[in-house]
């Protein structure tokens, strides 16, 4: 039962990436692409958390933590670039 639910969750989250990729390619402005990339990174973090439970290994959690922090800082950097024109 649990494995069916986890397989369904992983499949559903993998299909959730498709509209993010569509907005990333099609997006009219830079802000749309940034939001799509941030949403995609968060979905990948959740996929890694579920996959860590499926494979019964804690090592995927390190990957999820590092990816979450780098996506957060990258989003803030691009947001400041759009707002002010400089990053630092």
């Amino acid at each position: 039962m649990s494995s069916i639910l986890l397989s369904f969750a992983l499949t559903f989250m993998a299909f959730t990436l498709v509209p993010c990729i569509y907005r990333l390619i099609k997006g009219p402005t830079l802000s749309d692409r940034v939001v799509a990339l941030d949403a995609m990174a968060m979905v990948i973090v959740v996929i890694l958390g579920v996959y860590s439970y499926v494979r019964d290994s804690v090592f995927f959690m390190d990957v999820a933590l590092v990816l979450a922090i780098i996506a957060f800082v990258g989003t803030i950097a691009i947001a400041k670039y759009i707002d002010k024109g400089v990053v630092f």
Binding site: D62, V66, I69, I70, V73, A77, K80, F88
Partner: peptide, 20 residues
């Protein structure tokens, strides 16, 4: 998992967040 490279990247990320 881990090591010098990814630890250094995380430290640089933290300090660049401070700079930003």
């Amino acid at each position: 998992p881990g090591g010098g490279f990814i630890g250094g990247v995380m430290f640089a990320t933290a300090i660049s967040l401070l700079y930003i």
